[in-house]
Design a binder for these strands. Structure first.
Length: 868
RNA sequence: GCCGGCGUGGCGGAAUGGCAGACGCGGAGCACUCAAAAUGCUCUGUCCGCAAGGGCGUGUGGGUUCGAGUCCCACCGCCGGCACCA
């Protein structure tokens, strides 16, 4: 808005979104506004939804649109069943924000699409003997109708479905790019296997040892699978989290940090007797190397098998038995930390590089094959797990850190009494080195640095990092996903499908048995699997696995920027214009799944030079769930509240308002506490003040009732902050205050023809539109304006109306309020103190007391600090 | 075990270190009505008091400050993440 020095009311310039400069009269004719009493919420809803659809009101502006851009996005839905309360709350918040930025003069992109590959469609298809396509696209149509009925301001020209070949073609393209860069690779490894879904799972999809989808206990299976090398990006994924601080929920950042789990320390090479190659172990405490008294390797590692095979028959037999026991355990059993330590001595020895001591080598399942090098140097005195093991098998315990020294963890204690071998408690705290040659006396950090220097110089070790994060297993043995675009030749080599042959389309389900059986159903599609390598002309077999659907969702936010392109996955020029996403909304359940994968792929695309940013989502909001009786709503619990029922009964606006008002965005909302009738009541109250507004359109507000004008302008000033901090519940409360103020002005104040009433009602219409868009539009129309209110530009608040002439000062005595004074807002400290001292109540409170100090913060507060 | 977050009326929840409880739900009363619904208005943290007024109040105990729901320390409770990760 231009800087004007008049005290006019808000300047509600209606600027159409799509093309600035287009005149209101060119808009399609305004929908007929009937008399208030004759229109139900339902009628209002339909009328405006039709208007928005016909006018493409929320289509994002094109290249010629000069306004600054805002990209607002909700995590796209999976098209299972109909829309329910979960969707209602998830997609409400981004819609509020998108609508807000339109009022703030931004070219807003608020798209919607469907994450439409995945197991539920396939399982439903198996159950009904149908094609997953039918189920999927039927549900998508239902969702689309549901979202329109809910009043979402989407750009419907950019819809995408990940199960369209036009989409998954680019998934395959991404895979090939990853492959070219060595970021997609195949390896045989023990993988997580869900026996129910009959497919492998990524680490991220195993929750407490169970399948994230179906809850079945996960088992380990040795399989050759495709992986994305996310570990190569571990440092960047971890370090860049710092740049998101303050923009992403702290909790999500912390969860990702935990998940990546970087440890720093050293790799140390140990010579093994009777083996040519040394074995490397990782340790975060190389300072304790002198205290390493034995060596432990994971029983299911290749090294264990190798070392056992070189031992006596008896040892070999014992080891085999142990290995079988270990492999029979479920993940849940194995992860339990409080079970006794078990293991077998392999009758082999390693040599401690710092003192040449012989260290017996054991195989024990407390060492994991897939972390570090699958082997550890055991320092029982200073590691609880090693100590437990040493005590179970009577192995030597040697203290090399004195924790009783000044500043140590057991300062002033008696080291002999603290002997871990006796107490069973490892000394893991700080202290000074002892019994470690010339490391003696050094503190932990110094000793670590010194040890790494020595090892490096001797060539027997080096500084090293390790991560909890594992590479992302992306193969799935299921039908309804993106085929992996690779070919297996007769000579055993694996080659990519050339880019110009994409997409590798899914075959028809006709004649295919989709039932899970441990290998991909695609493998049975003979005519599909058997093909020819276009490069060599050799016969080839297609890779029959499909990709994890998290690949689909790892880059979809870029596809919205050029959703129909057959030239690019996304147009880099469009990405430059719109991306990254300014406001991303979704549930915390994706804190380390989707959000980690999307960050990873974004960094890869950055490295490919296709985008100029390294983080996909500049701001993230985790909304809470709608719960019922304290539990998540779900189909299985039978407490799913369908959206369509409520839209008919209460209307979209009442539902939106009720949810927005129910509490802070990130909190769960108890459904029984959401009052839709209360919301309805407020909406009709708002509509009524618009109907009652009696001054003409365009009437200047300057002469209007000042009290009401102050409320209006305070809201105009405060609402942007409230929306930008996602305090929608407070925004609703403030709207209620304004409507209450209008009500009061009409009934007992200046009356319905006062121009402040019009100004206030128009402000309500504009801001209410964010939350209850149909009612906002209807108010705007009834106030005599052309649609759409969504295009109205946010007026600046009049600064003169934001400062009060008189304010209420609290007068405190020792911090307790004893009186309030109405004083001029610009009162001086001295005058205020004098006024306070003159007040009768204050005098009474000060009677007989000695004033020690007086704090005056005009015009807010006076505080007398007194004695006696 | 490690890491993180949160504790405010009967309920959902407000509150840049400056009048705790905005706004709403629920409750009580009043107006309109033959009546009800709808609508509008008033009251509604708690204790003492007829009242004026006062005491107490943001999980508990300390601290910083003229002043603490807000900042610091300890504890209690709840929620979430990670966890035999060397």
């Amino acid at each position: 808005m231009s800087s004007r020095d008049t005290l006019d009311g808000p300047d509600f310039r209606a600027v159409p979104h799509r093309q600035i400069g287009r005149h209101l009269s060119e808009h399609s004719s305004a929908p007929h506004t009937e008399h208030a009493e004759s229109m139900s919420a339902h009628d209002i809803q339909l009328k405006w939804q039709q208007h928005w659809a016909e006018n493409e009101t929320f289509r994002a502006g094109g290249h010629d649109d000069e306004r600054p851009r805002k990209y607002i996005l909700g995590m796209f839905p999976y098209p299972s069943g109909d829309l329910h309360m979960g969707h209602a709350i998830n997609y409400l918040y981004p819609d509020i924000v998108a609508r807000y930025w339109r009022h703030r003069g931004r070219n807003v992109l608020n798209p919607i699409g469907w994450d439409s590959f995945g197991l539920p469609a396939e399982n439903a298809a198996i159950k009904r003997g149908a094609d997953p396509r039918e189920w999927t696209y039927k549900n998508i149509e239902q969702h689309k109708a549901g979202f329109r009925g809910y009043g979402m301001s989407y750009d419907w020209s950019r819809v995408l479905h990940t199960s369209d070949p036009e989409y998954y073609r680019w998934n395959q393209w991404l895979f090939l790019k990853m492959y070219e860069r060595g970021l997609a690779y195949r390896k045989k490894s023990a993988v997580n296997w869900c026996p129910k879904d009959q497919t492998v799972l990524a680490n991220e999809q195993v929750v407490d040892g169970r399948c994230e989808r179906c809850g079945t206990e996960v088992v380990k299976k040795k399989l050759t699978q495709w992986y994305f090398r996310i570990t190569e990006y571990a440092d960047r994924l971890l370090d860049d989290l710092d740049t998101l601080e303050g923009h992403w929920p702290h909790k999500v950042l912390q969860m990702q940090r935990n998940w990546i789990g970087r440890s720093t320390g050293a790799d140390v090479d140990f010579v093994i007797e009777g083996r040519d190659e040394p074995v490397t172990v990782f340790s975060t405490r190389p300072d304790t190397l002198h205290g390493a008294t034995f060596f432990v390797i994971a029983p299911d590692s290749d090294l264990a098998a190798e070392l056992a095979s070189g031992a006596s028959d008896e040892v070999r037999e014992r080891f085999q038995g142990y290995l079988e026991t270990v492999q029979k355990q479920s993940e849940i059993e194995r992860q339990s930390t409080d079970r006794p330590k078990t293991g077998v001595f392999l009758e082999r020895y390693a040599t401690n590089p710092v003192n040449g001591e012989r260290m017996p080598i054991w195989a024990a399942d407390y060492v994991l094959a897939d972390y570090g090098h699958g082997a550890v140097m055991a320092v029982p005195a200073h590691d609880q797990r090693d100590l437990d093991f040493a005590r179970a098998f009577d192995l030597p315990v040697r203290v090399v850190v004195d924790t009783t020294v000044p500043g140590g963890a057991n300062e002033g204690g008696d080291l002999a009494e603290l002997d871990p071998a006796d107490t069973g408690v490892a000394l893991i705290g700080n202290g000074r080195m002892t019994g470690s040659g010339d490391l003696d006396g050094l503190a932990k950090d110094e000793a670590i640095a010194r040890t790494i220097e020595r090892l490096t110089a001797a060539g027997t070790g080096r500084a090293a990092k390790n991560y909890r994060l594992r590479d992302w297993l992306i193969s799935r043995q299921r039908f309804w996903g993106t085929p992996i675009p690779m070919l297996h030749l007769e000579d055993g080599s694996v080659v990519p499908v050339p880019e110009d042959r994409l997409p590798v389309q899914l075959p028809s389900v006709e004649g295919l048995d989709l039932r899970p059986k441990g290998t991909s159903p695609l493998g049975a599609a003979e005519s599909w699997v058997r093909t020819v390598d276009p490069a060599s002309g050799e016969p080839a077999l297609r890779d029959a696995d499909t990709m994890d659907t998290f690949v689909d969702s790892s880059w979809y936010f870029l596809r919205f920027l050029s959703p129909h392109s057959d030239q690019f996955a996304f147009d880099p020029e469009e990405a430059k214009r719109w991306a990254p996403v300014d406001g991303y909304f979704g549930g915390v359940e994706h804190a380390i799944l989707h959000l980690l994968y999307a960050r990873f792929i974004t960094k890869v695309l950055f490295d490919l030079g296709l985008i100029d940013f390294e983080e996909p989502f500049s701001n993230l909001v985790n909304q809470g769930m709608v719960i019922m009786d304290g539990a998540k709503m779900s189909k299985s619990k039978g407490n799913l509240v369908e959206l369509s029922d409520l839209l008919g009964q209460y209307g979209a606006d009442a539902l939106r308002l009720g949810l927005a008002f129910a509490g802070p965005v990130e909190d769960d909302k108890e459904w029984n506490g959401v009052s839709l009738s209360g919301a309805q009541k407020f909406l009709s109250r708002a509509l009524r003040v618009a109907d009652e507004t009696a001054s003409p359109v365009g009437a200047a507000a300057d002469a209007g009732d000042v009290t009401l004008r102050r409320i209006t302008h305070r809201l105009l000033a405060d609402a942007p902050g409230l929306v930008e901090q996602t305090k929608f519940n407070v925004l609703v409360a403030r709207l209620m205050e304004l409507v209450n103020g209008i009500r009061k002005t009409i009934d007992t104040g200046a009356g319905a023809s006062d121009t402040a009433v019009r100004e206030a009602a128009e402000t309500v219409a504009m801001i209410l539109e964010l939350i209850a868009p149909h009612t906002g539009e209807e108010m705007w129309a009834r106030l005599g304006h052309q649609p759409s209110v969504s295009a109205v530009q946010w007026p600046d608040a009049d600064p003169a109306l934001l400062v009060e002439d008189t304010v209420t000062t609290a007068v405190q005595v020792n911090g307790k309020v004893r009186a309030t004074l109405d004083v001029p807002a610009d009162i001086s400290d001295a005058d205020l103190e004098a006024a306070a001292r003159a007040d009768e109540k204050v005098q009474r409170a000060l009677e007989g007391k000695e004033i020690v100090r007086v704090i005056v913060r005009a015009p807010k507060i006076v505080n007398f600090a007194v004695k006696g």
